[in-house]
Design a binder for these strands. Structure first.
Lengths: 332, 332
DNA sequence: CTGAAAGCGCTAACAA
DNA sequence: TTGTTAGCGCTTTCAG
């Protein structure tokens, strides 16, 4: 059923119907007529033709590297909360960590398929920059900071610094670190930097053997912990870039009979659910992921209304949650 | 830039351009001309007008109750994997557990805004049935079983039965249960049924005080565990409908000094990440959530090609993973 | 194989 | 306030 057909049934003109669903510049009689016909037929206007005319899709493209991640689903949660309240729908693209797919999605969105894009990126290649600079719809980048673009991100460096300092302040002097690739500026580089800043401030240094680069998962954390503990001299505290990695370390320690926090303290960033219930509960930095999503969406909305030429970066604060793995309370 | 403008630049007709992006009934010269122009201009056809003409959106609506759930994100992961491979995009609607919003989304999708719908429902009201029966696009229901509709679901009853039996077979004789609302036929009713079937088979009964209805989260599990243990006679095993609930129970036991599995065994359904690393690792039934998503998407795709009038239900199997909370291996 | 022209379902400008 | 008419950008006949 299309608008003409429906208009005929309702006994009004196409325009009247169109007005009913839009500005509503309409007399009450016509309005009643239309409402009655809707009751009977269940008609609702097709969105595609609407978009074709209006040149507005009421759709926001959200590009994510994966979905099965606690942090990412919280971000998307925040995004959807704000966007749906404003009548926008989410076009979700899951790139499965495939950079090419990420680029392809951006290109897909480049023109007029969506009104705006929120990109949860992990790394930025040359191609990213090139495609991003050519976008014709507003883009907001979430979780990372990229000069010249609207961003919502976290205080990764400070969080890593605070966690490391917390352990060193308790008298630990042989720190180790398991980070992730520097290509990821937020979870990688910034957290490395924060760790090293705290270490330097304490007048300590970190032997090569005490630094490992892991993947974003528990198994990788386990493996890297095994490496670190394989030598004669053992660390007395470990900073991990992500909670998942820390979970792997915790698992290794448990199996190897290494006591946490007595023998080694552990702290990491993310505040995953698991950390609250792990056999040794995890000291972590809570990043406000949902707030990240909410703010990214709001920023996009603002951009949609009046595209400022000056780009903004919003950096969200964090909270240290001390639990058992650094000698804090076991149940927080 | 629109098709006419682009056609002029490329030096061909609108139709030629249209053909290039569609059936490709085109000579090589024209094709080359167009490709060159694309290089220069970065033109890509707008999807809305395309949809308006074709009456196909290449969009699938996915309705979910919440996003911040491990199981749901796994399902959506599976859905997106299959769908994007087939060139479909996901229109994600997060209802935040609001039944009205769920209905509203269905109505929104009812007509021609999406090519199909995958619904991750938790409960079915009268209104659901009424709206669902009026849908004009194919619908697949995931995670629940609803007569007369295409469904992909789990063997919830059997999983609950198997877990309960596992504990009873180890000699436990005072079973307790913390379930969720019967309104949820899968996580609620079916799992209650499975629990009681095992109990009945063992010739046991369950005192009223040993049955609790919790919400879908850890805090609720904690609270209900406190209730159950407040009496003089204590249970020696507890079946929980979800892992989150079980985590709360585990937390309670830890604080109350109740030993798991010595004093009380615990088992639940879901295989959340947390269960692997909890202070007592959790015996659980692994449900194939991602597979659920994959199959729901495939089913929808099939329906899109040739809408069968006969509806199907696909019931997925499960796997029992025994860990510490029932005396199994602590690290699986 | 090609381009002109009509059509998709909707919105928007206009005169009444 | 209304209906008519022209347009939105794309696809699809239909002659040639």
């Amino acid at each position: 059923m299309n608008i003409s057909e429906f208009a005929k049934i309702a006994g009004v003109s196409k325009s009247a119907v169109s007005r009913y669903f839009n500005d509503g510049y309409l007399s009450d009689d016509k309005r009643a007529l239309i409402e009655k016909a809707i009751e009977e037929t269940g008609y609702s206007p097709g969105i595609s033709a609407h978009s074709a005319s209006k040149r507005v899709t009421k759709l926001v493209g959200v590009i994510i590297p994966k979905l099965s991640s606690e942090s990412i689903s919280r971000v998307v949660d925040g995004i959807s909360e704000v966007l749906t309240a404003e009548g926008f729908d989410l076009l979700l693209v899951n790139t499965s960590n495939d950079v090419n797919k990420e680029i392809a999605s951006l290109e897909l969105f480049r023109n007029k398929h969506v009104d705006g894009v929120i990109l949860l990126a992990s790394i930025f290649t040359e191609t990213h920059l090139s495609v991003l600079s050519k976008m014709k719809v507003p883009v907001v980048i979430a979780g990372q900071q990229l000069k010249g673009f609207n961003c919502v991100c976290h205080s990764d460096e400070n969080a890593a610094y605070a966690l490391t300092k917390l352990m060193l302040d308790k008298g630990r002097s042989k720190p180790a670190v398991i980070g992730v690739t520097h290509d990821d500026l937020a979870a990688g580089k910034a957290r490395w930097d924060g760790f090293y800043r705290a270490v330097a401030e304490a007048g300590l240094s970190v032997p090569r053997r005490f630094t490992e680069v892991a993947l974003f998962n528990m198994d990788s954390g386990y493996e890297k912990a095994a490496n670190i503990f394989s030598g004669n001299v053992k660390p007395d505290c470990i900073f991990c870039a992500t909670d998942n990695i820390a979970m792997g370390v915790l698992l290794y320690c448990r199996e190897a009979g290494i006591k946490v926090p007595e023998d080694v303290m552990i702290a990491s960033v993310g505040d995953n659910r698991s950390g609250r219930v792990a056999y040794t509960t995890l000291t972590t930095a809570h990043l406000h992921y949902k707030t990240e999503g909410i703010n990214a969406a709001r920023m996009l909305l603002r951009e949609l209304k009046s595209s400022d030429m000056v780009t903004k970066t919003l950096q969200l604060d964090f909270e240290i949650i001390e639990r058992g793995s650094t000698g804090g309370c076991e149940t927080v």
